[in-house]
Write a protein that binds this DNA or RNA. Structure first.
Lengths: 223, 223
DNA sequence: AGGCTAGTATGACCTGGGGTCAGTCACTAG
DNA sequence: CTAGTGACTGACCCCAGGTCATACTAGCCT
């Protein structure tokens, strides 16, 4: 169990913690979890290393806060523009998946921190992260899938939570592969110079996802 | 880049390395990556810590070997019994997914090591692992999917590699969730006392996977 | 046998960085 | 002004990954 910082009485304290978390995000993003040194973060802020431990208990505790902040900085499913949402669930999915690379470049630091949290720390931390993700649902996947069901686009014949998990798993895997060479099973970075084929693969992926989740249509004739 | 051990001239050396990797697997499985101490591994074998570094260069190098060994100890898709395979691609998928928990208990150590390699080390190591997984395909997913296509069960209208990745991603995610509390988004461990609902969820998952990948049938009437 | 070389083993040693803690400071309340 | 609380500090501890000079062993050539 990783200690959480207790709520500060003072508003000033909160500001300071935010500054630390901010610097930590940058360091973790740039150096990785192991590579980031608590001392460097302290030095960057001109404070004593001890202070950081005072506030966050441990390096893992600090990372956890950085991770949470990072996730909250990223868009949730329902943050798509209205005109996209009005086209429905799968259009929204496509919207986000198509914009993956773009988004990552815009928000490099939080994305990197999230990535590190997902794959590059250790299982104790991962457990804590997972609990939080489940309890907070910061990407709003649950709500999003329910919305898709209400629109009649998403199937309702299997457990909701399975669908939610599938969306999470697949979108994560795809985005990670698209964006980070470390995690790409050769789908995209091998084709770095063929953006057309990359696009095609994302489309194929979207096709598969839709096949998996779409509500069965009453015998619409295939073309 | 993580140094690989160079091939030993001596057969005896190989035996010794195997012993080290063996002990390392146990320690990593039981203590986690950070928790496992090189010194403990050496002590367990009654050798000097320096020797381990001699052979494997670094803790990460040792882990990499342990990981590879662990993966090779696990069954590949095509290792299903003949009577299952004769029922086809999706039957084989179901066979493995249904046996997940059982398998993990049988092969706890390699499974745990693989898990740690997948989520609990760092991105440098992860990259190395990924390269290896892609180049070796130790689970034979590529071959397996091609086999499914040849049988006419798996769709052929999207890139093969996308399908392969999807199978890998989803089966990994499901198995991890089923088996390790740390990674379960509440799908299974929250229902620990309701094995029936757990089974049902696995079935639902299989349904989704099949919907995603199945070759389109020539307008079979839905019930 | 007797060197010669290359690979292997050793354990004392080094070092960096996470984590601790006793003491100090700064703010607020009474 | 004083007491009390929380924040801050920096010197310190110590563990565990990694290094290295030295010693050993096994094959091999002459």
């Amino acid at each position: 169990m990783i200690a959480q910082p207790k709520a500060p009485r003072n508003a000033k304290t909160q500001v300071k913690r935010d500054r630390i978390v901010d610097a930590a995000m940058r360091q973790f993003a740039e150096q990785g979890y192991q590579g980031a040194k608590v001392e460097d973060i302290a030095a960057e802020l001109g404070i004593a290393k001890g202070s950081i431990f005072q506030h966050f208990g441990s390096k893992a505790g600090l990372f956890l806060q950085a991770y949470k902040r990072a996730v909250l900085l990223l868009p949730s499913w329902q943050d798509a523009p209205d005109d996209v949402r009005s086209e429905g669930f799968f259009a929204t999915v496509r919207f986000w998946l198509d914009r993956t690379e773009h988004l990552i470049k815009e928000d490099w630091i939080p994305n990197r921190v999230v990535l590190i949290g997902n794959y590059g720390t250790d299982l104790v931390l991962k457990r804590e992260i997972n609990r939080w993700l489940v309890s907070e649902d910061p990407y709003g996947t649950l709500e999003f899938v329910e919305w898709g069901q209400q629109r009649g686009e998403v199937r309702t014949d299997v457990d909701l939570e399975i669908i939610v998990s599938m969306v999470d798993w697949l979108s994560n895997s795809l985005q990670d592969a698209l964006v980070t060479e470390e995690l790409d099973p050769g789908l995209f970075h091998r084709l770095a110079n063929q953006p057309e084929r990359q696009r095609m693969r994302v489309e194929h992926f979207e096709t598969l996802l839709e096949s998996a989740l779409a509500a069965p249509v009453a015998d619409s004739p295939a073309p």
